[in-house]
Structure formats: C-alpha cells, structure tokens
C-alpha cells in the first residue's frame, strides 16, 4: 500500500498530464484558441507540479508555489471561458481576474502566509470556475450538435468535475494537515483520481480537434 501510493501520487498521476499534452501537440495546428489556452495551462500546470515535487523531495516548503499556481490556474481557465462570452462577459471576467489576483497576493502576504494552504482563495477560485462552467453549459445547450461532438463540452466537463468535487478538499486542506497519514493519503488519492478523470476528458476534447476532411457529397 505504502509503495503503491507513492508511485501513484508521485509518478502515475503527474505523468497522466502527458496524455492530453501529447494529443494537443499532435493536433496543435487544428486547435482553436480556447484549446490553445488549455494546452498552455497544462504545460504550466505540469511544469509547476514537477518543480513542486522536486521542492518537496528536497524538503522545501511549497506553499509559495501553490499560491502562484492558484493565481495562474484561475487566469488560464477564466481566459478559456471568456472566449465563449460576449463583450460584457469578457470585461467582467477580466475584472474578476484582476480582483482575484489582488486577493491572492493580499492573502499570501498578510493572512495565510505561514505554512498553511490558501484555503480562502483556492475555494473562491473554484467557485467562480464552477459558475463559469454552469454559464457555459447554459450557452451551449442551445447548440444544434450532439453533446459528444462539441469538443468544448469535454473540457468543460473536466473542469466542472474537478473543481466541484475537490471544493470540499480545498476548503478543509488545513484541517487535513493535522490528520493521520492514512486519512491524508486517502483524500489525496481521491483528489488524484479525479484529476486523472479531468486529464482524460481534456484528452478526448483535444482528440476531437483532428483536422476533418470536407467531402462535397450530398
């Protein structure tokens, strides 16, 4: 159990990010702008995760990295959603991005600045992303194509599934610090599994971007 958890959490889960990344690189030319944003989010996320793992291995505190990650994670995903909104929606999202960044910086320097998780800002970001995701669903339901044919639906499903399911974990992260190792591992395993789900859904979305040949047949 011990070894398996470490292999799962430190190697398998971070490596699954490569599935959507490789599919995205393979189809990069055919990727629409929102997908390119998600691609760069994955690259950023994977790189920071790698740095984080190395930092943990060498005994460094990774709270700063998590704070930086929280800001950029929200900015990337908010940029993704802003592609689907009109002028006003885009402005609101831009303002939210700026306000969220300011809140994160204040939280990091003055409120949760020691060895705690940023349990005020990360859930806030997650809640906003859930709201964006719901608004996206509201907009896309009017479409005339099948749910599975719309490549953006897969990305949205991944985001919604991950941020909604892990919201409780984000809120109670600091309580988990004082819990036993077994409880921590159980919670983090569930988190990691949901993360794999997210990456797989992203991968399906990227795979739907393959260049399609048009045949002039009636």
């Amino acid at each position: 159990m011990f070894n398996f958890y470490l292999i799962y959490a430190y190697y398998i889960v971070p490596a699954t990010i490569l599935i959507p990344v490789f599919i995205a690189i393979f189809n990069y030319q055919a990727l629409p702008k929102p997908f390119k944003i998600i691609f760069w989010f994955l690259i950023f996320s994977g790189t920071l995760n790698l740095v984080n793992l190395i930092a943990i291995k060498h005994g460094y505190n990774s709270i700063t990295l998590i704070n930086i990650y929280t800001i950029f994670e929200f900015i990337f995903l908010a940029l993704f959603y802003s592609e689907f909104f009109e002028k006003l929606g885009r402005r609101v999202i831009a303002v939210l991005m700026a306000v969220f960044t300011i809140i994160c910086v204040i939280n990091y320097f003055f409120i949760q600045n020691k060895i705690e998780f940023n349990t005020y800002t990360r859930p806030l970001g997650a809640i906003m992303l859930i709201v964006f995701s719901m608004l996206f669903i509201l907009k896309q339901t009017n479409d005339e194509e099948s749910w599975t044919d719309n490549k953006f639906n897969w990305i949205n499903a991944g985001i919604l599934l991950y941020y909604a399911s892990c919201l409780f974990m984000f809120i109670f992260s600091n309580y988990l610090l004082s819990a036993s190792q077994a409880v921590n591992r159980l919670v983090w395993s569930i988190h990691d599994t949901i993360l794999i789900f997210e990456y797989i859904l992203f991968a399906v979305g990227f795979n739907k971007c393959k260049t399609q040949q048009t045949i002039s047949t009636y």
Partner: peptide, 25 residues
C-alpha cells in the same frame, strides 16, 4: 469526524456533478 465529512463531501459532489453531466448529455 471532519475527515469523513470531507470524504463524503468530495464523493457526494463528484457523483452529483458526474450524474448532472450524464443527464445533460
């Protein structure tokens, strides 16, 4: 036990969201 509550919350929300997506599909 707060930890059980977190686990229940996570699993419950996961199921809720997954079924929501399934039904909307």
């Amino acid at each position: 036990n707060i930890y059980i509550l977190v686990l229940l919350g996570m699993s419950g929300t996961f199921l809720l969201v997954a079924s929501f997506i399934f039904f909307s599909v």
